[in-house]
Write a protein that binds this DNA or RNA. Sequence first.
DNA 1: GACCTGCTGCGGACTG
Length: 746
Amino acid sequence: MPRSAFDQLAEPVRRWIWQQKWPSLRDVQEKAIPAVLAGGDIVISARTAAGKTEAAFLPLLSRIASNGRSADGFAVLYVSPLKALINDQHRRLESLCEACDILLHKWHGDVSEDAKARARKRPSGLVLITPESLEALLVRRGREAPRLFSRLDAFVIDELHAFIGTERGMQLQSILNRIEVATGRERIDRIGLSATLGDMHLAAEALRPGAGGSVSIIEGVDEGNGLKLQIRGYAIERPASADDETQDGGDERRDPFGASSVPDRLASDLFRFLRGRSNLLFAGSRVNVEIYTDRLSEMCRANSFPNEFFAHHGNLAKAMREEVEHRLRDDPRPTTAVATMTLELGIDIGDVETVAQIGPGFSVASLRQRLGRSGRRPGKPAKLRIFVPEPVAGPGDHPVDRLHLGLVQSIAMVECLLENWCEPPADAGLHLSTLIHQILAAILQTGGLKPASAWQLLCGRGPFRNVDKGLFADLLRRMAHPDVRLIEQSPQGLLMIGETGEQIAESHELYAVFMTEKEYRIIHEARVLGTYPLSSPVAPNETLIFAGRRWRILDVDDHARVIAVQPTRAGKPPYFAGDGGAIHDKIVSKMQDILAGGNVFTYLDTEAVGLLNAARSAFRDLGLHERSVIPHGEGVLVFPWAGTRKLRTLLAALLASELKGSAAWHVIEIQEVDLEGVAHHLKRIADAPPPDGITLAARLAQPQLAKFDRFLSPELMNLVTAKERLDIPELPSVASATLRNLSRVV
DNA sequence: GACCTGCTGCGGACTG
């Protein structure tokens, strides 16, 4: 008989599995156990709730158990992006660790200082920690790092996909590297737990930057039960502006289907499909979450049903979000959470009947994560319904409205999902903001280091691979500049913390690398409902929809940053600012194929089919089947059929040619020019080598998107914009593709 | 035309 995975586990681990009365090990666990026991870097990927945690920890605890228990260092460091996930995992691992006589420590901002001090005093066993708490530990107690971590057997990174390509991911990679260097270990095993992405080699590279090829990849077989899928279209008449009920009007006309209301037919369909079961409704933005929750709750009340629709987004108080999660997971009453991406990550909410979504969303990766929330019970397929409202254009409306790009993008994204493709994470970034942070952290951890060893630590061996020695020196000079004073250099040449650096080091600002906005707290009686951005002014007596309910503002205390509210009958949607995202090239190019082609998509409802046919006719009427630039009014419309970064780059290049225009959703509109004029400029851009990106970036607004961007010089900021927000190398080929067939016309 | 995440340290006084 072959030796099964189970037999390879340590005796106390096997005994614990017996006690759980599991019928068998899951597929991903069978595969992961021998791999983890053998050692090395591993990515374990499977859908949410497929047993990834146990797949890593059953063999890891077997490894530690055979090493014997000691108190001279932690054995495993588990890093999670969410405190809530640490609390979940602590509950799941408690009895297993107890059975193995291995200590288990929770370590994040809500854990008492006392518990952390005890763990530090006699370091042993498993630590479940956030990147920020780990950063705090290194920065505040850098000299203890060798004692705490020299005996580490492995790092476990949960939700690895959530870290890839982000500032926080760069910080985490840097921290892991700093620990390896501080303990004098060449490499400590890294085990990443990830959702299944299109190309798992990118996850491997994220786990071990520069050596992704040496990482083993374990993919759990999807035990799913198939997919039931529908896209529903809603042709929505534009409200005549004379009927506009709101006093402050302007926004309403610009965005009739966004922030103001839910079209009646859409509302009644949502109510019909969702009520009476447990579902997730992804509404796209926090404002939409509020509007849809309010509307659906009102429909419950109007029909004398108890409410079963609840809001869930990042500005709602944790306690309120947890009530919704708890009701979904443990309460038999039907519950629909109307949510933003807060319910995409691995928080345990059990299985839902249907995943519904308003509009196309922003990425296929996100769509896939959402879908994994449904169809987990045996014999029950995952169900996805996408509801797409489309304005029906009348004469005189903008031609782009006739293309129904929301519906076409929804189809493109579903096609990508069915092809098993999803967006690879971006990796071209310089991440200078986070590098500034890591330079400060490394100085604090070590007490001071030479510029050459700082470069080697962070860029040579560490994750900031795109920063060469010259750029690193520029950055250090900027950090030491008299206007900035983040660092200074000692007579011996050591980098030391400067005056501004001191101020940051003394505050909470030091630990997290992502940007946050200052906010008011919204309070009803003694209860905190959530937070509201300071940048959005509100006044007493104003009404507000928040947490899916209607309130009147009693008082605004700007000093204490508190808004007091009481329930009321009327309310208007809240205001949250957003950043705007970037859609991938492949999706936009597929949109062009869908509009130009004649494929039938069986998952469309009748109304969506009608809208798609109308869009395809408009595509031909406008001549877009033959060329990508068409006349419009006094100017032209340019359709590069490329993703957001390329679109933005082409616009910047055209503006640099002294043209006037702007970019909207997938389209560039240029004013006061004819086809011939635009063709001339496109041809020049297509025939020239890629321009100097820094000069092009200097023409753009430079929003400080990352936390420490405010310390960068204009030159360094232009460099960041050129690398991270534009796509300079591809500009000539984008221009040339856009130009294709235009010569026949002019 | 967006969304999400996180967070010191210390010693001495007091209580049971």
